[in-house]
Design a protein around this nucleic acid. Structure first.
Lengths: 132, 132
DNA sequence: TTGCAAATGTTATATTATTACATAGTGTTA
DNA sequence: TAACACTATGTAATAATATAACATTTGCAA
């Protein structure tokens, strides 16, 4: 089910960087880090990011304008994402909880409208920060 | 329970504008609209927005960098927000569904971590756009 | 009526993201 | 293989979003 071989040169460079990072990366920090590999312009980064998001290899943390690699092997395409974000150290983890994703994927509002996609961000203190 | 009287001059001008708007407003569109009222600089807008978000009078739609007035009278402070967003016409509505908010407020991840805050954005097509 | 916290005003600048246009690679199929 | 469509790349310029730093003013409680 892995599509990594399909990635183009720039997409691969940028995915690898994000995938290795322990924390979400911002576009211009990515740019800075890949300049030695010949990626010089913001647009090159944003184009790769757009594509990687589209195919579900990475997710955008909207509240932080930052990107992390998808941690969820069953998440072929990023239509249902949930994250936990520590407001102290900014650690971000992807939540893969079957009950939660089922609940949200099946959620219909008062008018019975169902949704094709959602993004959920939880905020709090991670274990480490809580015990400080 | 209304706190509107507490709003400062700039906060009130900006809240009124957002509250009257049928759609989420972006910071610089707000700036443009309040320049006749003597608010000249981005920072004046952002400061008011920050405060209004903090006290729960408005919410930020993170995926759109835009702001809407809180529709939920019981939402004194914006710690638990959910929105439906039409990907075609960009209509945004706040969802106030007791079951959903209870479910999410009580959600604890694998490690048992509970969260003090969340923001959920659903995407799909609104009724009008679906029938087109 | 002083003193503090919150809010305002102003300039400059940082950060995030897109437009526009030209070129090159990749895969399909006639 | 030639023609085509589609995707990706390269580059420059600029738009859109957001914050830093500093000076001043206002509201209100002790």
């Amino acid at each position: 089910m892995e599509k990594q071989q399909n990635l183009s040169k720039n997409q691969k460079i940028i995915f690898d960087l994000i995938d290795k990072s322990p924390e979400p990366l911002k576009a211009y920090s990515i740019l800075f880090n890949v300049q030695k590999k010949g990626i010089n312009a913001p647009l090159q980064v944003y184009r790769a990011l757009d594509k990687l998001v589209e195919i579900g290899k990475i997710h955008k943390i909207e509240s932080r304008n930052a990107f992390i690699a998808c941690q969820n092997s069953s998440c072929q395409i990023s239509k249902a994402t949930a994250f936990s974000i520590c407001e102290s150290c900014e650690k971000v983890s992807e939540i893969s909880n079957t009950k939660l994703s089922k609940y949200l994927s099946n959620f219909a509002d008062e008018a019975g409208m169902k949704y094709s996609k959602y993004n959920l961000e939880f905020f709090g203190l991670c274990k480490k920060c809580k015990s400080k």
